[in-house]
């Protein structure tokens, strides 16, 4: 039974990693093709760093991901605090339903609906082009906020409300109590939200495809326009580097997690 399970799991992993293996393999191709291997070479890694367009797109992608994640985290955290403190059940469930819309809707509908809004407003004010970096940023913030709220709200619910009351009894103003007591206890949720928003934004193609202007190219958008023709192995080299970076980050976070688990276990004993 156990060996059947292992074989099955092995096959699924093979399926999940097959295209990634291919991609890593062909990033070392000496030739220009991504399907015919003509010898080992590191030249595409060199090409990548001298590829101005790709480096520019990478910079843009990081800029967009960092700004949209920060803005979404601030707005989303404040929103979560607001929702948590809402007295009216009707109001809070309405707000939560609206929050669910971008997560339920397919990306293409979210993208198209935001684009139509920008175009509509653009026509109203008579602008020549209605899509630019700002519209792209707004779109990213919009699809990130729900994930921030979903990460922070449970942390608020886990926080003992008596802590904040105790702080206020000891002379804190409600605002001080929030910053000194509530905020530190929901910090892990906020951090997780920030990270999630960052990765979502980094990887988004569909929504960006509809809401960005011609002057701002992100990596997924660049890759898309390349895949319409042929992709050179330098894109595979870039993906390999991204893959390795994420792998290292995950391993490090796993080790840290295990260490803190051990510490906690010791603390309990």
């Amino acid at each position: 039974m156990r060996s059947v399970r292992s074989i099955f799991m092995g096959l699924v992993y093979m399926f999940l990693y097959a295209p990634i293996m291919i991609l890593v393999f062909f990033s070392f191709n000496a030739g220009k093709s991504t399907s015919v291997f003509s010898g080992f070479s590191l030249k595409w890694y060199g090409e990548l760093f001298s590829n101005g367009e790709a480096m520019n797109a990478l910079g843009n992608t990081l800029l967009l991901a960092v700004t949209s994640a920060l803005i979404a985290t601030v707005i989303g955290t404040v929103a979560a605090v607001g929702i948590y403190n809402m007295r009216s059940k009707f109001l809070s469930s309405t707000v939560m339903s609206v929050t669910n819309i971008p997560m339920m809707n397919p990306d293409i509908v979210t993208g198209v609906s935001l684009m139509l809004l920008f175009v509509f407003v653009g026509r109203l004010v008579g602008a020549a082009t209605s899509l630019n970096f700002v519209t792209l940023l707004i779109a990213h913030v919009t699809f990130n906020i729900p994930y921030v709220i979903l990460n922070v709200l449970p942390k608020l619910r886990q926080t003992d409300s008596r802590l904040s009351e105790a702080a206020q009894d000891l002379g804190c103003t409600p605002v001080q109590a929030f910053f000194k007591v509530v905020l530190p206890s929901i910090a892990p949720g906020i951090f997780a939200a920030l990270l999630m928003a960052f990765t979502l934004s980094l990887d988004d193609f569909v929504i960006s495809y509809y809401t960005n202007g011609a002057d701002f190219q992100t990596l997924p958008l660049m890759i898309y326009s390349m895949t319409k023709k042929t992709v050179r192995p330098d894109m595979y080299a870039l993906s390999t580097l991204i893959f390795v970076t994420i792998l290292i980050l995950l391993i490090v976070s796993n080790i840290l997690q295990e260490k803190s688990d051990k510490k906690n276990r010791k603390g309990i004993n």
């Binding site: 999940l16 995950l250 796993n254």
Partner: peptide
């Protein structure tokens, strides 16, 4: 972690890789 790792790779490039296969 192994299951989620591929999701962090760009969907476009992974699909393109399937095309190569």
């Amino acid at each position: 972690m192994l299951v989620m790792l591929p999701m962090w790779m760009n969907l476009l490039i992974r699909t393109y890789s399937w095309m190569n296969i």
